[in-house]
Design a protein around this nucleic acid. Structure first.
Lengths: 147, 147
DNA sequence: ATTGAAAATTCTTCTCG
DNA sequence: CGAGAAGAATTTTCAAT
């Protein structure tokens, strides 16, 4: 599928505010609402837009500690871990990476005690390395066309 | 601000599909549209909802390689790096972490050559450790109330 | 805080370039 | 593929509880 400049403008707006109305978007890109609606539909169908998600302030919700946890999975425990990790409510991301520690997770916890508890539940699957997020310089970028 | 069960249901729906209509959401949570609209507005005002973002399929858009890059910033270069990194189009996240490598970035590139080029632009600020994302077990979780 | 109804806006469908 | 218009649906406002 071809993503022209107009489609990138639409994607830009949807990244910035996914709840923007078609009218709003169509004004910004200089097209009519039906055209924009059709373009969005096609990009959704093509799988270019995976979805639309509200970004929550985890601190305000009572989970002020953001953590990255990498784990070197114990031999033979990979399948078990992959089944287990989606059931852990604290973990919002988990990626299999190249390199020594094969998995990287991101999560949120209430306090250090809660982190200790989380680590306790994970450590049976492998050796952990835990890092706290002190601050975020970029939280989530709005991609704007080819680079 | 108090986030009751109903507000969590609303947040759940907005995480799943931020473009859902008020009508749709109000049916799921068993309230009228005006009530839901007011609750959402209050959560936005309280900063509990930071925003709404389209999730893009970077692979479909021509950036099939996801990477995590950690960097140990050279002494005295932190301020320069923090100014520079938001201007790098490939990088979508950057967090200051505890531990040895003080910054962790996430980004997307076209191919290994592109990654080499990106590393070249970053390496002046510190020592890099680059890991490719092989696959994602959890991409972004829908948080569902207290845990 | 919530609802129901009316008014205003937006979305969808359809026809036509 | 895009525009415009008509009809359908949704959102917003507001009075009442």
């Amino acid at each position: 599928m071809n993503i022209d400049h107009t489609n990138w403008l639409i994607l830009e707006e949807l990244q910035r505010n996914a709840r923007a109305s078609l009218r709003e978007i169509s004004h910004k890109v200089g097209l009519s609402s039906p055209s924009v609606a059709e373009r969005i539909q096609k990009m959704e169908d093509a799988g270019i837009v995976k979805g639309y998600a509200a970004a929550l302030n985890m601190e305000e919700l009572g989970y002020p500690l953001g953590v990255y946890i990498s784990i070197k999975i114990r031999f033979g425990k990979v399948a078990q871990f992959e089944e287990f990790i989606p059931t852990v409510p604290e973990i919002c991301e988990c990626h299999k990476l190249t390199g020594h520690d094969c998995m990287l997770m991101k999560g949120y916890v209430k306090n250090p005690r809660h982190l200790e508890d989380l680590n306790g539940r994970l450590t049976v699957y492998g050796e952990l390395t835990t890092s706290l997020i002190l601050s975020s310089i970029i939280d989530s970028k709005v991609y704007q066309g080819a680079f």
